[in-house]
Design a protein around this nucleic acid. Sequence first.
DNA 1: GCGCCGATTGGCT
DNA 2: GCCAATCGGCGCC
Length: 204
Amino acid sequence: MQRARRAALLPVAFFARPADQVARDLLGRLLVVEGADGRVGGRIVETEAYLGGEDPASHAAGLRRNERNAAIYGPPGTWYVYLSYGMHWCANLVAGPPGQGAAVLLRALQPLEGLELMERRRGTRIARLLCAGPGRLCQALGIDRTLDGVPMRRSPARVLGVEGLPPGRVRVTPRIGITKAADWPLRFLEEGSPWVSGPRGRND
DNA sequence: GCGCCGATTGGCT
DNA sequence: GCCAATCGGCGCC
């Protein structure tokens, strides 16, 4: 029987490094989500690193440990999913050593698989608007609270260890949409990708 | 208990 | 470009 060659998952060790390195190295990898109504996925083209307690913008800074942010203190490779502005889910992967509170926010994908399902979930057929932005990405992929605190290796949402981006294709910019330490150069995106989020002119 | 703010998005001026 | 929608944590009364 034909068996599609299955790429290996990224190992836990991949995530047990500083969040900025993890954020950069996640670019170009494949994120695949198995849902009840189908399988969707795409290439990661935009991420942001949140460094933990020392980073004023991190959910590990200024906030006490609570039910909402508990997952961020888990082991590397754990999903941290929270509700933003009361209506959009945002998906992060915990990075660095446990307890540090560092994580990488997934901000945009190049949609590749399950386009029709993503269009249905998002209510648009404009490909550019399917996965450009953390809230849109989660809606297209069917990611919500049920993923929060789940280790990636045991979750329906997995990042495959396909080849990442060569250094020349990676652009680093200030972070988007936050007020504290926004200017820290911790947003990573694929150079020239039409699939990234953010207003035009914000990508340089 | 109440008001403010936010790692967002989409619709309207 | 402006602004409402909508939930949860936090600070303060």
